[in-house]
Structure formats: structure tokens, C-alpha cells
Design a protein around this nucleic acid. Structure first.
Lengths: 242, 242
DNA sequence: GAGTGGTCTAGACCACGTA
DNA sequence: ACGTGGTCTAGACCACTCA
């Protein structure tokens, strides 16, 4: 029996990586904060500098932390200049990449079967429903519907969204201490419903790119379900395969 | 003047990585072959084992090589069991992932302005045009059009494609020594033309997912332009963001 | 100048695959 | 039994940021 290869214990650098993620989940350091230096962390975890470094390598690759030579290691944040729309892969044919945001509504609701499954909620648990548009100039390009567990986003409302100058993920991070680490998306081509067509200013039945996203915070806990409808007449979804 | 941070020379592990890629491009080792051991490579490049290891780490992350503990380091190949359809992100709603291939045509043609730009060809340089379907059971799901520079794929024809049991990328690798390393894709939602609708067995005007891909071999040389039309009624394009 | 991350080395020991 | 990659350590020196 060859056995399907297993180690008794996870490697030390992996254990350390998990300890750091736990500390982040517990709020020991906030997005933007500096972590202790590699030497200090090595002391804290009773490992060599090289082993701690390896753990930080993995976290850097996953965009959980960010290193700046000479300055330190920092918790990644969606409020940083370059990280706006980090998860939005839509690019204009002419290369443009910025957007204007326009809130349609923000209201309380109950989890559907679908959102409960995606977000690991109990049936009919309270959620907050957000609908908004992204526009390039006057032209709407994206219609987003979001579902957020109320227990993580208690108090989120239209006024708060309209008052906030940054992206939604930056708002979630600053006001609710929920930092998005990674996301999974399912893409489909669909026909514009009458409702979507009206909001996006296109003809009913026009093809739209449907992007269903589940976003996860530290420790792979799902905290957002989002469905985007992208108008891809003058934009495309950019992806890299390797 | 702070200067925008630059090093005089690339780090040693980066130089070594490039030397290994050059050797791969020159055909020193073929897909599936074992590379020399880390110790031997260290001797060859006059570096420590740790530095060579770091170079191999990067190549492993990029799926250029593959490590098997106890066995060695091997050149990645599309002919390996798990690597069929490595670049195809289409998943059925029920989780199925395999396909049947059906060739529509394979013929010689001239590069268009678009394909010449994407593949870095001279205007009207000879290319080979392939059209094929991917089916799940009897249902067509993908219509692919490929454009390949004839100078890299000289002799490719229908008979050869039909006789080959594996994927196209495996064929390219085995018969033409062209291994695809990475690819860039642009996704859009489009309406099915009459021609595409007929081949895919859907109504004209139905929304389809258009996937335009440029695939690169060692050294970031583009060697394939492909346009896929995916029917996403019972399938979706899976993507992971981080 | 003090402190941080980035590179590179040398060596020990372990886990695994192959024959 | 041997050779391979995988983990972990200790230490040197460099490049950079910031006060």
C-alpha cells in the first residue's frame, strides 16, 4: 500500500502562516498596519528568520500582506491607491480603467436559498441588499447586486455609501473591519432583462456578461455574494492563465 | 532625487531562472524530461543549492516545471494526465469537465491585420486556420477558431489532428515542439451569428461567451491566437481572484 | 545611523520514490 | 541503499527607508 502521501504535522512555515492569519482575523493588526519585523516574529514563534520569511512569502503572494524594503511588512488594504477595483477585471478597449459609482438602493432583506448556501447562512437570515451602477462618464457599464450578511455589516445604509469617497471594499474595511482577501467568480453570457436593460441603457435582450462572485475574508470565510452584469460593447474582462 | 529604485544586476536566482528558460526554449530538455538535480544545476551555474532552488520555485509556480519529491524535477507537459484542458476554464453546472473533440476544418490562410498584430507576424504571413467543436455528449458547447503561424506548425493538417488522441496543446507539443506556457484572454458577451448558431445548435442571436486568447511559449513568444465561443446555458467560466 | 526587508551561502536532517 | 526534493537553521552582507 503506497498510501496517498501525508505528513504527520504541517510544516512549521505553514503553521506560522496560519497563526498570522488567525491574528489578522482576530484584529491584532488592521489593514495598513505594519507587522512586527521578521526578526521579532521569529522570536515570537520560536522559529528561525528564514522560516518566518517563508510564511510571509506565501502571504505576500496571496496579497494578504505587502512588503516594502527598508520600511517593513504591512497588512494589505483596499484603501491603498493602487488597490482600488483590485477584483474588477473590466478594461475598456482604449485601456481606461476608472469608474464613477452610482447607488441604486441599499435595503434590508432575507437570505434566499442561493445566498444562504453561498454565504453559509441560516435560511432567511437577515442580509443587506445593495444595487449600484459603475459608469464611465455618463455611460453605465456595470450593474452590481450585492448580498451581505447583516451580522457583519450592521448599520450599512445608503447615506453611508453615498458619503464614502472610496470603493465598497475600502468602505467595508474601514467601517466594518471586513477585509476581502480573495474571490471566486462564475461567468456566463446572458440576455439583458427589461430591468437590467433599463438601468444599463441598452436594448432588452442584448448580451451581457454575468459575473457571479463569492468573496472571502481571512480564514476563507465567505462574506459577500455579488452578481454583476457587465456591458461588454466597449469593454472586456481581462484574464491571465498559467 | 530618490530615484525609482533599480538594481545594477538582476538577482542571481532570476538570472538562473532565465538561463533555464533559455535552455528549455533551445530544446535542451523536452516536456516530460527530468531536469538535472538541484545539486547538479547548482554546480553548473556556480551557485548554491538554495539559490537554484529559488529559481526552480518560481518556475514551479509558473507551471513551467513540476517537482516530484524523491523523483526529481520535470519539464511540465500538456500530455500529462491531469493537464488536459489546463487552460479551459469551462465547468458544467453539474461539475463535469471532459469533452469530445470534433474538427470542422484545418486549412492554410494568410494573417489578417488582427492576427499579425497578436502573433507578431509580418502582414499576410502564412498561417494555419483551425476550427473545431468541443461537445459534451452530443451537445456542442464550444466553437473554437485558431490561428497558428505556419512557420511553427508546418504540415499540420486535418488527418493529423483527427488521428491524434490527446488535446491540441499536447499535439503541438509532441509533433511541433511548441509548448504553451501561459495565455491572456479577453472575455465578452456576444450574440450568436447565424454561422456560430448553426454549429453550436442554438438559436441565432443567443448570447455566447466570446473568449479571445493569445497563448505564449517559453520566453513570452506568442504562438497561437484563438477565439472561442462558449455556450453558457449549462456551463460557466470559472475564475479565481486574489 | 539604526532598523527593515532582500539576497546568498553552507550544512543538517527528513520524506519520498525507485530499483 | 541511494538519490531526489522538502524543511529548517544560522549567519553574512547588501539595498533601502526613515527619522
Amino acid at each position: 500500500m503506497p498510501k496517498t502521501s501525508a505528513r504527520a504535522t504541517a510544516p512549521l512555515y505553514e503553521q506560522i502562516r496560519q497563526l498570522i492569519v488567525s491574528a489578522l482575523a482576530a484584529g491584532e493588526w488592521k489593514p495598513g498596519d505594519a507587522l512586527p519585523s521578521e526578526a521579532h516574529l521569529a522570536q515570537r514563534f520560536g522559529a528561525s528568520a528564514g522560516t518566518v520569511r517563508r510564511a510571509l512569502d506565501e502571504l505576500t503572494a496571496a496579497h494578504v500582506v505587502e512588503r516594502r524594503q527598508g520600511a517593513g511588512t504591512f497588512v494589505a488594504t483596499h484603501t491603498a491607491p493602487g488597490n482600488s477595483y483590485r477584483f474588477l477585471r473590466l478594461v475598456a478597449d482604449d485601456g481606461a480603467t476608472g469608474f464613477r459609482r452610482e447607488l441604486v438602493h441599499c435595503r434590508r432583506a432575507r437570505a434566499t436559498a442561493e445566498s444562504a448556501r453561498a454565504l453559509h447562512l441560516r435560511p432567511a437570515e437577515p442580509v443587506i441588499e445593495v444595487r449600484r451602477l459603475l459608469l464611465r462618464g455618463a455611460r453605465p457599464v456595470v450593474l452590481d447586486d450585492l448580498w451581505l450578511p447583516e451580522r457583519h455589516f450592521d448599520g450599512l445604509d445608503s447615506a453611508q455609501i453615498n458619503a464614502y469617497p472610496g470603493t465598497l471594499y475600502a468602505l467595508f474595511e474601514e467601517r466594518f473591519r471586513v477585509h476581502m482577501v480573495r474571490a471566486e467568480e462564475k461567468l456566463r453570457a446572458v440576455s439583458a432583462t427589461a430591468e437590467a436593460a433599463a438601468l444599463l441603457g441598452v436594448a432588452e435582450g442584448r448580451p451581457l456578461l454575468s459575473v457571479e462572485r463569492v468573496a472571502y475574508t481571512y480564514g476563507d470565510r465567505p462574506v459577500e455574494l455579488r452578481r454583476g452584469l457587465y456591458c461588454t460593447d466597449a469593454d472586456f474582462y481581462r484574464n491571465e492563465l498559467n
